[in-house]
Write a protein that binds this DNA or RNA. Structure first.
Lengths: 105, 105
DNA sequence: TCATTATTTTAGCATATACTAAAATAGTAA
DNA sequence: TTACTATTTTAGTATATGCTAAAATAATGA
């Protein structure tokens, strides 16, 4: 599989869009939370000690970009991961951050 | 290793910065090129069929953000990958894109 | 020094992102 | 209907990003 992105600019665009969709500290934290299952907005706000509108905006951004999906149950709206690639990516990032953090500090 | 990003906002910021640094189609392609070793700007421009100033700007952006490093040799400036995490990330992205692309098309 | 090749920088513009405070909407229950 | 909880939307502002064309800089060799 030599140089897929150079031979396939459309794939480069697609990959870049996924990365941009998650390249934000709060959005990464949200994805991490949702790895253990769906949560409603209020739960996420509490878990992150964040503000409601910002959290809602980030959730909608990720829905728009195909990372998450939502479902309403009564007054509450539950979000969950739609694109499993992002979980894989997070795991990969953890491994890298770990190997960087475990050097003698 | 439970929820490192939520318990460690600084790590969330750091990870987000790495992702933002590479979340661009041309920058991903440049990283892919440099995985096989350092290249000078002109070689990269040719390989990507890109414009000189844009390529130079993207290269400098990635240097500023700790992804690449440069060295001058005479009139030419060679760039190479500094942060090995980004190569790992690319490999992870390939695996995901592959598994998505290999479903019946 | 002058011309040429290699690369970077500048200025300007358009669009995207991120955040805030306030208002609006949706659903539930009295 | 009213009040309350849950969530989204709006308007405004600040900053970041991405691109272009043109000019500037750096190194080399005649």
């Amino acid at each position: 599989m030599p140089q897929p992105l150079i031979e396939n600019p459309a794939m480069a665009q697609k990959v870049a869009r996924v990365l941009k969709a998650i390249a934000h500290p709060v959005r990464l934290q949200i994805i991490e939370l949702l790895e253990s299952g769906e949560m409603c907005v209020g739960q996420i706000v509490d878990a992150l000690h964040a503000k409601y509108p910002i959290t809602s905006q980030q959730l909608n951004t990720m829905c728009d970009r195909g990372v998450l999906t939502q479902r309403r149950d009564g007054a509450k709206v539950f979000y969950r991961i739609l694109n499993p690639s992002v979980s894989d990516l997070l795991q990969c990032l953890y491994r890298n951050c770990d190997s960087h953090n475990t050097d003698q500090t």
